[in-house]
Design a protein around this nucleic acid. Structure first.
Lengths: 147, 147
DNA sequence: CTCAAAATCACCCGAAAGTATGACGACAGG
DNA sequence: CCTGTCGTCATACTTTCGGGTGATTTTGAG
């Protein structure tokens, strides 16, 4: 800011000197003082406006808008399934257990015997280190095997 | 913009007239033309700077920064709890069931008897229209009672 | 204080869940 | 052809769950 003022002052001084040097050659007409003043005024006004624009050009307003992330579509973690050696049937049964069905209901839905469902779920619990179906569901969710 | 220029011009004209009116009273000294020019220059430069600032004050660069909302914080649906007449204890037990604990484990955790846990869960199942604990968990999630 | 709701506990019993073990057929891959 | 995996099923047994009933204590609102 100070710098700008100094530069401005210097320019003003130089301009005045320049004008003085030529005032007796081209502006000797009587009453030309008004023209002289107007020109000087216009010139410095333009310089002032330019300076003012220069000084404030960098103003910015940062607007932070929070955007809700759309629900990430559930994707079964196939890698984990393989790691744990969980078969398709076992995974299918885990899903049905998670939806709140009993062994018998699952058996009916899959057209197999209840005992089969029990064996599957037993093996599933082993692989998930679960002792109960509720725990299996909880672990399954945590591992991304079910939504 | 046009308006500003006009106003400026008008002011300039008025100033010149004003100066002319007093030039023979206070600035009759020879060579005072330099002082006159300097004053006019400084005055209009100031006006110019002010104008420049005024013109650009409202210019803003809007930067939109999208912020991903991490996880929608889970909020228990208290209204639904009241609608169903589920007590605090029952809700507490629903949460523990959902985390995969057995009745006995819940009893130990809450320092009550297993029978108490059974009674609570029984009433809870009634209120949720659930026949099994797994179903209670599924319904509870659906109703926003548990995360 | 009083009353009702909530929380606690007990006992019984049948149903469901879970464990253990063995067996059989289908099917893919070496 | 042989072997391993998967899916299927069965039997027997133990544990857990859940329903039903009744009772006592705590607690909070009026």
């Amino acid at each position: 800011m100070r710098k700008h003022v100094l530069i401005y002052g210097l320019c003003g001084g130089l301009l005045i000197v320049a004008l003085k040097l030529i005032e007796y050659r081209f502006l000797v007409v009587e009453h030309s003082i008004e023209i002289y003043g107007g020109v000087v005024a216009a010139l410095f006004a333009v310089v002032g406006i330019w300076l003012g624009l220069k000084l404030t050009r960098k103003k910015e307003t940062v607007v932070v808008r929070e955007v809700a992330v759309p629900a990430p579509p559930f994707r079964v973690n196939q890698t984990r399934l393989q790691e744990l050696g969980i078969t398709r049937r076992e995974h299918e049964i885990l899903e049905l257990i998670a939806s709140g069905l009993s062994n018998r209901e699952i058996a009916n839905k899959l057209f197999v015997s209840e005992n089969t469902v029990k064996t599957h779920s037993s093996r599933l619990f082993d692989k998930l280190s679960a002792k109960r179906r509720t725990q299996a569901v909880q672990i399954g969710k945590q591992l991304g095997l079910i939504p």
